[in-house]
Design a protein around this nucleic acid. Structure first.
Lengths: 165, 165
DNA sequence: CACAATCGTCAGAGTACTTGACTACTTATA
DNA sequence: TATAAGTAGTCAAGTACTCTGACGATTGTG
């Protein structure tokens, strides 16, 4: 049976939840702004993918690395965004194995709006903390990440590769 | 290979990403600890379901309401947890339409270990920051959440919507 | 007793991921 | 410079998690 002691332990009060709540708030704010801007068919995952597409195109494997998902998952998401007209897939002239994902006009419009939205959210938080406090917060978040990663080697699904940032 | 051009394109630098990275690190650390403890088959959703199972058993429709998902989704999760021996499903003697789910011994053990793991991760981060710094970090995360929530026309907090699904 | 609501379930679907195996190509090195 | 090793993308199969719609069994109510 589950006694009162066990039940108390189920209560959720730890940094993991703090992090989740803060991240979720960002995600939700971004998504609701996206809907307001008329992009109701764009999911959170879509916007995550789009976020990593650069002006000269990006390889899907880069998208996968950045999002820490398998390249197959990234490929699938790219496929759906291509189908909906936000992305274009073209061979990479520099590397015949590779393809570059580029934004269509529709995708560019979305990206412009998305970047504006993200910058707005970023600045909202920045204003709340002030310049010094904000910089410190961001350093601390990185510190949290490192502390947790160092517990046990940062393993990634799918292809193994060295991490860059 | 990540050349300089690509690296520049990958540049995505805002608090949203910082938060995501930190949270993801927590999640990954939790799962790898779970795997180490022998629960390779337990997912985040599983642990959420488990957390709502009461001492006298709970109907799946209650789990659905608590997690704000459809009863079919809840049923599916229960089914998987029953199949893996973490939950028990028995007819409700009070209501012949209903069934009650209860934690098995294995389910109880999982709950205990899960709580210990979460506490361990929490303490890891706490050690990294020291008591005062840790408290400050958690306050700041809450502050981030509030700053982001307040941007939106306050529709979130206590909105009572009685109709689910 | 008739009817509406509730509980669980099946069927079908869509999103978001996973691993494994494979081809095509590039890069490093012996 | 031939070749081994690594990388990019793809296909296939599968898991997890969620949804809507429809339906039978049961219960509670007027």
């Amino acid at each position: 049976m589950v006694n009162d002691a066990t039940r108390a332990l189920m209560l959720v009060d730890h940094v993991g939840v703090d992090l989740w709540r803060a991240f979720r708030a960002f995600e939700e704010a971004m998504f609701s702004a996206l809907v307001e801007a008329g992009y109701a068919d764009v999911t959170l995952a879509d916007s995550d993918v789009l976020a990593f597409v650069g002006p000269d195109g990006t390889r899907s494997v880069e998208l996968a690395k950045n999002r820490r998902i398998s390249k197959q998952a990234a490929q699938e998401q790219v496929k759906r965004l291509v189908a909906r007209g936000y992305l274009d897939l073209a061979p990479d002239p520099m590397d015949r194995r590779a393809k570059r994902v580029t934004l269509t006009k529709k995708g560019e419009a979305l990206m412009r709006d998305l970047v504006a939205i993200k910058r707005g959210l970023h600045d909202s938080v920045g204003t709340e903390f002030g310049e010094a406090g904000f910089a410190e917060l961001r350093v601390n978040l990185e510190r949290v990440r490192r502390a947790l990663d160092n517990r046990r080697g940062g393993e990634m699904p799918g292809d193994r590769d060295e991490e860059d940032q």
